[in-house]
């Protein structure tokens, strides 16, 4: 089964996402900020990444860039709150494959992840 990297500085969001994904049979790894996310990506080569945008240390957009630099094929979906349209657009221009708007329903998360992994 595919491995998914969940990146969010909010532990609750990480936990919820992880739960949804594990229950659907995915292997989940986690990161609490952009720096951790880049490290995790380099070490574990996950199949897909769910990336929060606003985070301490390194934000989602920068992390996206660094991950794409490591792996141009990286499949990243941004996780955003409403009102961040311009950042999301920028992320999509920089290679993010999809986005999810918080609060995310389980169904939508799973649909997005299965699309990313396809």
């Amino acid at each position: 089964m595919a491995t998914i990297l969940v990146v969010d500085d909010a532990a609750f969001m990480r936990m919820r996402m992880s739960k949804i994904l594990s229950e659907a049979g995915y292997d989940v790894i986690q990161a609490g900020n952009g720096v951790e996310a880049v490290e995790q990506y380099r070490g574990q080569k996950p199949d897909a990444v769910l990336m929060d945008i606003t985070m301490p240390e390194m934000d989602g957009l920068t992390a996206l860039r660094e991950i794409r630099a490591i792996d141009p094929q990286a499949r990243v979906a941004m996780v955003t709150a409403l009102g961040q349209q311009q950042v999301v657009l920028e992320a999509v221009k920089q290679g993010a494959k999809d986005f999810l708007v918080k609060p995310c329903e389980g169904e939508r998360v799973l649909a997005a992840v299965s699309k990313l992994c396809a």
Binding site: T80, L82, Q85, V88, L89, V92, K93, D98, F99, V101
Partner: peptide, 13 residues
């Protein structure tokens, strides 16, 4: 869809 503008851009991509 809450951000149709971005989907629209993805379609163009």
């Amino acid at each position: 869809c809450q951000l149709p503008g971005i989907r629209c851009y993805q379609v163009l991509q």
